[in-house]
Design a protein around this nucleic acid. Sequence first.
DNA 1: GCGACAG
DNA 2: ATCTTGTCGC
Length: 225
Amino acid sequence: MRVRTLHFWNVSPQEAMAIQLRLRSQLRLYGTGPFATVAGIDVAYDKSSKLMFAGIVVMSGDGLEVLDLATATASADFPYIPGLLSFREIPAVIKAWKQLKTPADCLICDGHGLAHPRRFGLACHLGLLLGLSSIGCAKSRLVGTYQEPRSRRGSVAPLLDQGEQIGVVLRTKDGIAPVFVSQGDRIDLDAAVWTVLATCRGYRLPEPQRRAHLLVTKMRLTARP
DNA sequence: GCGACAG
DNA sequence: ATCTTGTCGC
């Protein structure tokens, strides 16, 4: 797995903000066709230490079979600051990514992409660093306003901010809380929404993301004294 | 000053 | 994110 060598994760919150603005101009955001493989990522934390666990699950785009998976443990040094989540979670995610044997064509991230104060959330950061299409699929809002989408699976409502659409609020399951989908890198909103809906299997979250969550949750309970 | 605030 | 039991619903 090839990773762009950008090693600026040991910076202050102020520097982090400047870095996001600089990298923002490097976004591709062009539409990409169907993906052969889709990966889901998630990170869990240990409450009694600074340990954090990252997990990635790669699944086939058609049959949604698990093709590969990787995990990594790291120290959460950067604090959690709304808008700067990337700087906290990416080190662990990259570490897990390097363990993968099977390449992924698309990455579904547990957080926002374009739907970010500086239009550069976790999904954008990861897509740019790993050089692949990425989608932001968050469980709650960071910025923007929206109307509640209708209760049927597939219903959408635009997520607006500063007079522009930054993503969509998507119902992935009937009567269940919607998710917030936005472009990461190398993908357009329609493809992002389509990919999320296509990878959901009866649950609120896309299967790759859901499995990555289960994976890191077990790590948190397992890898403790 | 007050409220909001991905995970 | 994490701390937590039972409980309502499919």
